[in-house]
Design a protein around this nucleic acid. Structure first.
Length: 420
RNA sequence: GGUGGAGUCGCCUAGUGGCCGAGGGCGCACGCCUCGAAAGCGUGUGAGGGGGCAACCCCUCCGUGGGUUCAAAUCCCACCUCCACCGCCA
């Protein structure tokens, strides 16, 4: 969400953002509606002030006078009611449009309609070389009995999987390692609900635009969140924090659910694109200062890169284009990890700064030392998301005899084993 | 799932239709007092929106949303959350 005053004062900046992000929003309509809404608000306020003084007169009046007063105010009440209804209508419509107002993207973002305009800003590590034909992760996992696909699909339908045996232990190792690394960096682990209400989905910006992507449980007015970010933002929603509590750093863990509604028949095989996965998420809530959130953005990105270099994986960092970054984002960097059998990189991490766009939606504020209240800045980035990252490990570290070399940092979590 | 109780301005609390458009205490801030502090005394102390050049003024908010009424923290309905007990259960 944007500040209405900001939109009034900088309509061109908002229009630019609408264009750059390819948002379907008429800024002029929003501005006109805002003006109309304020006018009605003013009129309703005035009318209600009169209405209140009337009620006071009434209290002091005798029965005869009361009858007169009632008659006198019938028409006034009717008008007030009419005004109220008009205000309710414009303000409902205004709120709808406000939810579609995009965050202003940073000036360094490549301009373009979608991910094809993204720019690789660095590539780290080297491609592994094999003196044998490497198996793709699906085949390797099946051969080693590390995953069930056909059987899992009998249980849960398309894109379902079950991890088995050492793959489960490897998943746990990856998560434990990531969590320990984040704890060293003063991130507090938080295991959050994945089953959430609508409000935090609107608050994070997942709704209304991304509604199709979220599993809904109508019987309970609940939804399955696609990321721990939903609950992490929701945790402090509506609060006024003390500046001394900031920055808040969370390592969120939760299962994540995605319908993949726009990806029908894409990556249907294996562990790359699934409806349910496990993620450790980095989350930061800091003061409303672009320099401060920029520092955190760099740190979140660096931590994700550290994880990949620790694991020995080859990756590229991408500067995401305006049309790819999503409605609320100021800046987004994806990290794509190398998959040998695909002969290309695939997204494993996504680092985002939202400035105060998300905090405004979620009503997430803090009080500075001068007593002034501000909306916070929020940032998030993947630490590890499995099983996609497991697939990368399998493919990159496989041996000729279909074993998998365990990255050194994971060995302590696997009883010291160096091969699976 | 059942029964009963509860949700008030940071915290505790008063409040059962107009004197509550919210009182008190704690905490906090400032001032007085003091060499300094504590204690004491005094003053102030929520959020959102709108109007005005301004000092200021107005509206909304007592879990949320509806309703009754000239008037709702207070009455009615639904929902949410919490507590207690019963049932069920990893």
């Amino acid at each position: 969400m944007l500040d209405k005053r900001f939109i009034r004062d900088n309509p061109d900046a908002v229009k630019d953002a609408v264009r750059l992000k390819g948002v379907d929003l008429d800024v002029d309509e929003l501005l006109a509606l805002d003006q109309e809404n304020r006018k009605l608000q003013f009129e309703v306020d005035e009318a209600q002030a009169r209405r209140k003084s009337f009620a006071k007169q009434f209290a002091k009046a005798d029965e005869a006078r009361r009858a007169e007063l009632r008659a006198e105010h019938v028409e006034f009440d009717r008008q007030l009611q009419d005004l109220r209804e008009r205000l309710a209508q414009t303000s409902a419509r205004l709120s709808e449009l406000m939810l579609l107002a995009p965050g202003i993207p940073w000036e360094g973002a490549p301009v373009g309609p979608d991910e094809s305009a993204n720019v690789v800003i660095r590539t780290v590590g080297t491609r592994p070389e094999f003196d044998f034909p490497p198996l793709d992760h699906t085949e390797l996992a099946e051969k080693r009995g590390w995953a069930e696909f056909a059987r899992a699909r009998r249980v849960a339908g398309e894109r379902a999987y079950a991890l088995v045996g050492d793959m489960v232990m490897l998943e746990r190792a990856v998560h434990s390692y990531a969590l320990d690394l984040l704890r060293e960096r003063d991130f507090t682990p938080v295991a959050v609900p994945a089953l959430v209400k609508e409000a935090p989905l609107v608050g994070t910006g997942m709704f209304p635009k991304g509604r199709d992507e979220i599993y809904e449980i109508p019987a309970d007015d609940a939804f399955l969140a696609g990321t721990a970010e939903v609950a992490l933002v929701g945790l402090h929603s509506g609060e006024i924090l003390d500046a001394g509590q900031l920055p808040i750093r969370y390592a969120g863990i939760s299962p994540c659910f995605r319908r993949e509604i726009g990806s029908a028949s894409r990556d249907v095989r294996g562990l790359l694109r699934v409806h349910q996965f496990e993620k450790v998420e980095q989350f930061v809530l800091c003061v409303n200062d672009p320099a401060e959130s920029a520092r955190w953005h760099a740190e979140l990105l660096a931590t994700a890169e550290r994880i990949l270099t620790d694991l020995g994986l080859h990756y590229e960092v991408v500067e995401c284009a305006t049309g790819d970054m999503g409605l609320g984002k100021f800046r987004m960097n994806d990290i794509n990890t190398w998959f040998p059998t695909l002969d290309r990189f695939r997204e494993t991490h996504s680092c985002s700064t939202l400035h105060d766009w998300q905090a405004r939606r979620a009503n997430l504020r803090y009080r500075d030392s001068g007593g002034n209240i501000h909306f916070a800045h929020t940032l998030n980035n993947t630490a590890v998301a499995t099983p996609r990252l497991l697939a990368a490990i399998l493919e990159n570290f496989q041996t000729a005899d279909q074993q998998v070399r365990v990255p050194e940092v994971l060995r302590p979590y696997l009883g010291g084993r160096d091969l699976l």
